[in-house]
């Protein structure tokens, strides 16, 4: 389709403007992070010389090496455990009949619909009573709970859509339930699993409220939480702050760059669903 010339120009201008608006903050923060600390200001500028010193400083003196490790431990554990449990339960809800199935399923749904804000306070006291506050468990356990609530729902839909013939065929080959599930069905729904893993990874990595409430000591502090503390401590050290912010965001940006299809598809599931 051809557009009239003036309209095409306006189109490009508007689209270009919004592309700029969406890009500038992100590019700007990376540039600031690469600016020598004494030249950096709040308004982004193209650095005259590149300086990776800010990253080194945030990583070492800023202890972001440690915070990133905490985030990795929490996120990876959560994602792996939640994925296994979600697949198991999602399969059962989709493919098995048992008393109380609906009740159990709706209870799981509650876990997904109720925002953390509703129960973060009792959750904190619950954790404190069993002496788990300020441990990785205080983050991992609730994160798994939230992730499986979503994961079961997600996986159940995909398992239910698999033609029964596939399962029958596997059974005829003598495969048990477990083998059918992991060796036949999971490969079939692999994209769905990847999407689920990406989403839970993102939610867990980016969590702030849970860490803010549960974690007090430095040794278990996750990267986003550390960044917010870092910010109130070094308000005006823009280069250092930007480097820290970049470090925290980087893992997801890389993942997104590689797996953007899964991200976008997952987050927009509704619209894409046939």
């Amino acid at each position: 389709m051809r557009l009239s010339r003036p309209e095409a120009i306006v189109n490009y201008a508007v689209l270009g403007l919004f592309a700029l608006i969406s890009l500038i903050p992100i590019v700007g923060v990376v540039l600031t992070a690469l600016t020598p600390a004494d030249q950096a200001t709040a308004s982004f500028a193209i650095p005259r010389s590149l300086d990776f010193g800010n990253f080194v400083q945030a990583w070492n003196q800023g202890r972001f090496s440690q915070y990133m490790l905490s985030s990795v431990i929490v996120t990876v554990t959560t994602v792996v455990v939640a994925a296994v449990f979600s697949i198991l339960a999602g399969f059962a809800f989709a493919r098995m009949r048992f008393a109380g199935r609906n009740v159990l399923f709706y209870l799981m749904l509650i876990g997904m619909f109720i925002p953390l804000e509703a129960y973060i306070i009792p959750l904190y006291f619950e954790m404190r009573d069993v002496g788990l506050t300020d441990t990785y468990a205080a983050l991992i356990l609730p994160q798994i709970a939230q992730s499986v609530a979503f994961g079961i729902f997600w996986m159940r839909g995909f398992f239910a859509a698999i033609p029964s013939s596939l399962i029958e065929a596997a059974r005829l080959d003598g495969a048990g339930d477990m083998r059918t599930l992991w060796q036949v069905l999971v490969p079939v729904v692999r994209p769905a699993v990847i999407t689920m893993v990406m989403l839970t990874f993102m939610w867990t990595w980016n969590d702030f409220l849970l860490s803010l409430v549960m974690i007090t000591s430095e040794s278990f502090r996750t990267a986003p939480l550390a960044l917010s503390f870092f910010q109130s401590q070094f308000v005006t050290q823009y280069a250092l702050l930007s480097a820290a912010a970049t470090i925290v965001a980087l893992p997801l940006i890389i993942l997104y760059a590689i797996l953007q299809r899964y991200f976008i598809r997952g987050m927009l599931a509704g619209a894409i669903k046939e």
């Binding site: 904190y124 404190r128 002496g131 506050t133 300020d134 803010l212 409430v213 007090t216 000591s217 430095e218 503390f229 109130s232 401590q233």
Partner: peptide
């Protein structure tokens, strides 16, 4: 093991930390 945080950050986390079984 010295843990430094800004005044307002300390205010918010201290109450939580004190009541844990392993406070500073």
């Amino acid at each position: 093991d010295r843990v430094v945080r800004s005044g307002s950050d300390l205010r918010t986390t201290l109450k939580l930390a004190l009541s844990s079984s392993t406070p500073p």
